[in-house]
Design a protein around this nucleic acid. Structure first.
Lengths: 336, 336
DNA sequence: CTTGACTCCCAAAACGTTTTGGAGAATCTT
DNA sequence: AAGATTCTCCAAAACGTTTTGGGAGTCAAG
């Protein structure tokens, strides 16, 4: 309601003094500071954000690009992540703004608009592609950013990612150790780093075991994509006995395909992401998840450190993957 | 990169003229306008957002409060809604910022911070409670806002909501018409308007049919809550033969309880929200959904009209509920 | 030649803060 | 008692826009 000028006037002080009192500078006497604080509290004074941002030359804003392409944005806990991140950024005086990407417009253009209009101090990128033009642009502009997922960019940049390669390799090896020989992979779109990474993990394990990595089908990273991909694999002359799925959503789609084709109890299956839903499917879905608590907080922290100027190399977090064993990965293996 | 002063200098024009040229005012000649536009394009000039906001006395920002309480924030398409809303707001020059609510802090305080710091021009509220202090605060401040869900506030305010009462009443009547007599309700937390509304719908139908509305259990609006509530109802001496669940997530939890207790094929069930996941459960989940496309766009439009000063009464959208029939609502009804 | 209308441009003020570079008074040193 | 130091405070500049209220010049009409 009130601004600094009015507050100062009502106190018989200068704007400067009031401002510095509220900011806790030492060159204002304790008595005055207290008096100012009380008055400010009483009238509910809050500094005008726009004015401060202009003066400080900081936007106090961080943007996260969000493709409006429905459903195509990651797991449900994505929202929790965002909210956690926003919360920790807020503690540092930064707000998180959504940079939606309208159909037909490129994510790159959106980044441009936000960066060149000095609307943000930093950016958060999700769903990275192997070759991600947003990353290159932000690097060229020198604006701090953190990605959720790695890229194949030549210059290092800050990221948080799960070690999908290791996770999917381990899951595949585990199926092999359990006696499976025809282990299929339901893959996500390979232009995304995470999908490619997970696919590579499966492939590496297959080759280590001397098995041909030929039971692989790609689909959209959602239930429907997993359903269709599973049907495709089940049509093969020699069906897989186990399926490693790029995401839980795809795994749940695949589960339905299995129910339709073989009654649902024959083929073992494992997903990735640990959706809450997975505990309630039939059979309960075995899955994997990135280790580490409070993902949002980590993003916020990395972002703040990037803004503070720490070098990219020190701002890279690769988290191990852990199994979440429920039932779907240990269907009885029929006659070897 | 460049600001107005530099751009003006390089063109030999005044700041005023350059500014007005770019804003398309008529009092600058077509020739100059073109010259200015070209130069601006060439250096990639973008007005400094903070400066404009300060001068215009508009934040160009809309906030949506997001409880950081994990999982407690509505259906997955919530994110699509946000993103769609953000997109349409962006077309009007507004950005959507996330106002996270840290544990322990009230949503009211967050609203306060955003509103009193003049950080936003309007607010978007989700998951309304029957008695919602945020609504009262915003009304007292006279700041435009739209809620997702109604409240019991005395003053009217803009909202978008589904007619949960009618939907749940219809669903219950349908079960009755199919011969069910013991129809249970799995309810969400009653302080939320939507949960109370849906519960009222079920209760009304029961009473219309001359049935006692006593098979009702309340739980958290998630899988686990539905699971526990269903177990509770199944422990009753006379079990329900049909269940009407406040949300799909609760219904999916209930489905699991049914599987555990009676093999899963005896009791009919219906949820609400039309989660994509529902098509992939076993049995595929029958559900309801709010009619209307492009929810995000509607929110944006209402918000813009509220900002423009339209009265609240004209900014209320109550959408009908439609059935999405899959399998779970028509389990064979055993011996009447 | 004056008047008015019109076209194109601009100087200056304003938005509300933070920060710079002191100023005046009181206290301490020597 | 003079100089140095410390304590409080403040005027003014700056951040980069948008907007107000004209000011020249040109042209046509009277």
């Amino acid at each position: 309601m009130a601004n600094l000028k009015q507050l100062a006037q009502s106190l018989g002080l200068s704007i400067t003094t009031v401002s510095r009192a509220l900011d806790g500078y030492a060159d204002v006497s304790a008595a005055t500071r207290e008096r100012v604080r009380e008055a400010a509290d009483k009238v509910g004074y809050r500094p005008n954000a726009s004015a401060r941002r202009l003066r400080r030359q900081r936007a106090e804003l961080v943007a996260v690009t969000l493709p409006s392409d429905p459903g195509h944005i990651g797991p449900p806990h994505f929202l929790d992540m965002l909210s956690g991140c926003a919360e920790h950024l807020a503690a540092a005086g930064l707000n998180l703004v959504i940079a939606p990407v309208p159909r037909g417009e490129s994510e790159l253009n959106i980044c441009r608009r936000f960066v060149d209009g000095r609307r943000v101090d930093a950016m958060l990128l999700v769903r990275t592609k192997r070759k991600d033009e947003r990353v290159e642009f932000l690097q060229s502009r020198g604006i701090p950013f953190v990605t959720n997922g790695r890229t194949e960019s030549l210059l290092p940049h800050p990221f948080i990612d799960g070690d999908g390669f290791a996770g999917f390799r381990a899951a595949t090896l585990r199926f092999h150790a359990a006696g499976h020989r025809r282990i299929g992979h339901i893959a996500g779109p390979q232009e995304y780093y995470f999908a490619h990474d997970r696919c590579r993990g499966w492939r590496a394990a297959m080759e280590e075991c001397g098995l041909a990595p030929d039971l692989c089908a790609e689909g959209a990273p959602l239930e429907q994509g997993g359903y269709l991909a599973a049907l495709e694999l089940l049509r093969q002359p020699s069906r897989p006995t186990a399926l490693v799925c790029a995401t839980d959503e795809m795994a749940i789609g695949a589960l339905r395909a299995l129910r339709e084709v073989d009654g649902g109890s024959q083929i073992s299956i494992v997903g990735h992401d640990d959706l809450p839903m997975g505990a309630f499917t039939s059979p309960p879905l075995s899955t994997m998840r990135m280790t580490g608590e409070h993902l949002g907080a980590s993003f916020a922290s990395l972002l703040l450190r990037a803004i503070a100027g720490e070098p990219a190399e020190e701002l890279q977090e690769l988290h191990a993957i852990e199994f979440v064993d429920r039932d779907s990965h240990r269907r009885p293996l029929k006659a070897a």
